[in-house]
Amino acid sequence: MTRPRPSDPTGLHRVLDPGRVLPQAAQRLDTRCELWPDEVRVRVERLNLDAASFRQLERKHGGDGAAVRAEVLDIVRTRGKMQNPETGSGGMLIGVVEEVGPESTLGLEVGDRVATLVSLTLTPLVIEDELAGWDGLGEQVPCSGYAVLFGRSIAARIPDDLPADLSLSVMDVCGAPALTARVVADYVEPTVAVIGGGGKSGSLSLAAARQAGAGRLIGVVPHETEAALLRDSGLADEVVVADARDPIVLRDEVHKAGGPADVTVVCVDVPGCEGGAILATAERGTVIFFSMATSFPAAALGAEGLAADVRMVIGNGYVPGHASYALELLRGNDGVRDLFERRL
């Protein structure tokens, strides 16, 4: 086989765009199944779509699962990867390693069942079954096909003691609790508010904040049904029901619950929550944005316009050891596990 360029650990050799861009920014990737020497090919079993991406597709098609499925198929065929053109986000996958290049440094072996810890927005992907087993109504997508990992990709073996779909849900958001713990540890018994505290990344972030020494935990959820579940979990000291898109309501409700927060973690999958998160945060506090629905220009300009002296951190989804840490939080916290299992 004649290869167009030598292998690069970033996956640059798979980019089909003119010029030089990295795979995540590319419009189309080379999905040939033949491997470069440092690559790994995975036989895909299931995709986990990013929450912001799935919600956007669901809203666009009015809950029509067949239309959502058709658009996902079209995106993957057109781009050679799963990257929602509206949100820019993708998700991750689980599967079984079927071939390992001789120069791969990922430590994987043929037959390993793994979850990829890099985004589908930069992962060459081919779907071979037309997503026949997916109704288009949920984020987890049964799938047959293959994906390719690069020299600098990340993957983790699926643990034997947890169901695969549960592991996938945890690993999809494992960067959130790890970074939350790191930031919370910089403070002395801080007040921590988690916007979207009843969700996957939110519940793990609450547990991580508690373990890292938070003095007070405030969970923010959009409606009473989710508030009841979060209260039952015991993860938060105070549970606030508020529309995170309304900055004044969010500010006031967090303050009533014991804020402003020293650390605010944004885990919601809807746009327009930047201003409220900033207003809910104390001066010299930190806002961690984990949602792919976040507008980072809106966050930066909003903080400037509000004269808010807050540090803003973009959660990039990777902290060393993040997958193992998130799985241990799940194993050791019945409240977290119950919320995850209810969502499955």
Rank of each mutant, 00 (worst) to 15 (best):
A227I: 02
G272L: 11
S324D: 15
G305K: 06
E139V: 12
P37E: 10
G335H: 10
A52C: 04
L117V: 11
L235A: 13
L250P: 04
D237A: 12
A244G: 12
V42P: 02
S153F: 05
S169N: 02
G335M: 12
A51S: 11
A236C: 12
S233D: 04
G101W: 04
D269H: 05
E34C: 05
H61T: 03
V114A: 08
F290E: 12
A214M: 07
H61V: 06
E189F: 01
C33D: 14
V287E: 07
E128C: 13
L47D: 06
F290R: 11
E128I: 04
F296V: 15
G332E: 14
V141R: 03
L344E: 05
I195N: 12
L117T: 14
L16I: 09
E189H: 14
A147K: 09
P124V: 05
V68L: 04
L166D: 07
S119Q: 14
E58K: 15
V44E: 13
W134V: 12
I288R: 07
L149F: 01
G215C: 02
V110F: 00
S203R: 10
L279V: 08
G213D: 02
E99N: 08
A67F: 00
V96K: 01
F289I: 05
V183M: 04
L16W: 05
S144A: 15
A300T: 12
G101V: 09
G175F: 07
V141I: 13
E98D: 15
V44M: 07
E226F: 01
V184G: 13
D50Y: 02
A280V: 08
D161C: 09
S201E: 01
H223V: 06
G219K: 10
K200Y: 00
V263F: 00
A227W: 02
T281P: 02
P260W: 04
C273Q: 10
S153D: 13
P222Y: 11
T225N: 11
G275L: 15
A185R: 15
D309R: 15
Q24L: 13
S144G: 03
L149K: 03
G199P: 00
V97G: 01
G285I: 03
C273K: 00
G175Y: 11
R343L: 11
D112A: 07
A257S: 09
T78I: 00
V44G: 04
M292R: 15
A308P: 02
G202Q: 06
L149C: 03
G215A: 03
M82C: 10
E128N: 09
E130V: 00
V72K: 03
A214I: 08
N333A: 03
V310F: 01
E34I: 08
R59P: 00
L230R: 05
L149W: 05
A299K: 04
E304D: 06
